[in-house]
């Protein structure tokens, strides 16, 4: 059996998720290339492949001209995997969607606001069909390897549908709310081993919402713990702009 052909592509992003994907011990890298054939990798290689088994796509779609390129990747690949928050939920790129185009282009390029083509930031799943995703900002290397293995084995990737609280409790953390910090953990997808709350932070929501979040209850809790409605929305803004339940239809 020939090894599945795998390629990496990026759109609007920092390319950090691709770096995480190959942030491997030497033996891990050897094992990885023993099961997949990496044919295109912006960060590591320059070769171009044709038909692909798996296309990992990093970054969000922020230009109309990206749409064609994304659709071509879809045509070439049996499976498209959204790699990281930008690709999966438009990530922090979507912060600009809270402003008008005039506002953000003026803010970033005051000299020449029309210098670059740019528009509403979108997740790739808003444009093409996505078969799997690896959440996070950045992604977790272990999870990337697990998902890759699962796809090679023909198995649905085992991405948790439960929230960060599960992992926080398993790690026996004191709830950050007890320390007076408001956290999005109860409605955000686990799989990061509660990295932020376990290390003195709180959950920013980079892995996106769980499938059935109780947003009303989450909002009640944040307000009960001292946030005004506006401050609470600020917390959701960083990663969850594309969520209609919180922010309504496209701004």
């Amino acid at each position: 059996m020939s090894k599945p052909k795998v390629a990496f592509f990026d759109f609007a992003c920092c390319e950090g998720c691709q770096l995480c994907a190959i942030d491997l011990e030497p033996e891990q890298l050897l094992d990885l290339v023993s099961v997949v054939d990496i044919v295109e990798f912006r960060e590591a290689m320059s070769e171009t492949g044709d038909q692909l088994d798996i296309a990992f796509v990093e970054g969000s779609i922020t230009r109309d001209s990206d749409i064609d390129r994304l659709k071509k990747i879809r045509e070439r690949a049996k499976l498209v995997v959204a790699l990281g928050a930008c690709s999966m939920i438009a990530g922090i790129n979507a912060l600009k969607n809270f402003q008008t185009k005039a506002e953000y282009t003026q803010a970033v390029y005051p000299e020449d606001p029309n210098k670059y083509e740019t528009t509403t930031a979108k997740a790739i799943g808003e444009i093409i069909q996505v078969d799997a995703f690896i959440p996070g900002c950045p992604i977790d290397t272990g999870e990337f390897l697990r998902v890759t293995k699962n796809l090679v084995l023909g198995k649905t990737p085992d991405i948790p549908t439960y929230p960060v609280c599960v992992e926080c409790k398993r790690n026996e953390n004191v709830c950050v709310y007890e320390k007076g910090i408001q956290c999005l953990g109860p409605v955000i997808r686990a799989g990061c081993n509660a990295r932020c709350p376990s290390n003195g932070g709180y959950c920013f929501g980079c892995r996106g919402l769980i499938p059935e979040p109780n947003i009303n209850s989450q909002q009640d809790i944040m307000q009960k713990y001292g946030l005004t409605y506006e401050k609470m929305l600020e917390k959701f803004k960083l990663f969850l702009q594309r969520n209609q339940e919180i922010f309504g239809d496209d701004q």
Partner: peptide, 13 residues
């Protein structure tokens, strides 16, 4: 039940 976040914390602990 309407307030429950289904976060599983109660069960973990």
């Amino acid at each position: 039940g309407s307030r429950c976040l289904s976060c599983g914390s109660c069960i973990m602990v």
